[in-house]
C-alpha cells in the first residue's frame, strides 16, 4: 500500500482584511477518512484549494509526502483527485471524450477496464457517449467522481460530495468512500451530517478563527 501524508504547518489564509483561518497544524495519513466541517463561508473550500495547491496560503505550508518523499507542488495533480461544486468539466465533449483528454493531458495511460467500472459504479455507462451539456446536475456531479478517480490518485478531496445527488447517487458516493478508505487518504469537506459520519477524524475550520 502506498503511503501518502499531508501536513498543514501554521496554515493561515487572509482575504483582504478577512481572516479565514489561522495557524492550522494538522497531519493527515493514508487509511483514514478526514472531515472538514464548518458553516457556510467558514473556509472549508478555501482550505481544500490550499491543500490541492491551486491557491497560496498567506503564511504557513502544506506538505505532500508520497512514500516519505516531499512532492513538488507542480506534480500534486498526478496524486490528487478532487470533486467540488465549482469544478466544471467540458460541456462540448462527451463523458468519454472528457476522460480521454484528461488522461492524455495528465500523461497517464488510460486504463479502459478501470474507467468502465467507474462508469458502472456511478451509473453513467448508458450515457457516456452523450455530450455533457445534456447531463442533469446530478449526472454532472457523478461524472466529477469519475474525473477524480480516473488516474487512481492517493489523495481524494471531496468538497460537498453529495450536492445535487439523489439517494442513489449518494449511496454510490458512500460506497466508493467505504471501498477506498483503507488504501487512500480521503478528505471530505461538508456540512452534511451523513457525509461527516463517514469520517474517522473531523477538523472544524471555525476553531481556527482567532
Amino acid at each position: 500500500m502506498s503511503n501518502y501524508t499531508l501536513e498543514l504547518k501554521n496554515l493561515t489564509k487572509i482575504f483582504g482584511r478577512r481572516l479565514v483561518f489561522k495557524d492550522i497544524n494538522y497531519k493527515f495519513e493514508t487509511g483514514k477518512v478526514y472531515g472538514i466541517a464548518g458553516s457556510n463561508g467558514s473556509g472549508k473550500s478555501t482550505l481544500s484549494k490550499l491543500i490541492i495547491g491551486i491557491s497560496s496560503p498567506t503564511s504557513g505550508k502544506v506538505l505532500h509526502k508520497f512514500n516519505n518523499s516531499t512532492l513538488d507542488a507542480d506534480y500534486y495533480h498526478n496524486h490528487v483527485g478532487f470533486v467540488s461544486p465549482y469544478l466544471v468539466l467540458y460541456d462540448e465533449f462527451s463523458a468519454e471524450e472528457n476522460i480521454d483528454y484528461f488522461s492524455k493531458i495528465r500523461g497517464v495511460q488510460k486504463d479502459s477496464s478501470r474507467i468502465s467500472s467507474l462508469f458502472e459504479e456511478f451509473n453513467l455507462t448508458d450515457r457516456k457517449t452523450d455530450l455533457l451539456k445534456g447531463y442533469s446536475s446530478g449526472m454532472k456531479q457523478r461524472m466529477k467522481f469519475i474525473f477524480a478517480l480516473q488516474h487512481d490518485p492517493e489523495l481524494l478531496i471531496f468538497d460537498e460530495p453529495t450536492s445535487n445527488l439523489d439517494s442513489k447517487g449518494k449511496e454510490a458516493v458512500y460506497n466508493t468512500v467505504n471501498r477506498l478508505k483503507n488504501n487512500k487518504l480521503i478528505i471530505i469537506a461538508s456540512n452534511e451530517d451523513a457525509d461527516l459520519k463517514l469520517c474517522d477524524n473531523i477538523i472544524n475550520v471555525e476553531e481556527y478563527k482567532s
Binding site: 490541492i52 491551486i54 467540488s84 468539466l89 495528465r106
Partner: peptide, 8 residues
C-alpha cells in the same frame, strides 16, 4: 480549475 487539476 479543471485544467489546474490535470496539468502543471
Amino acid at each position: 480549475l479543471t485544467l489546474q487539476l490535470i496539468a502543471k
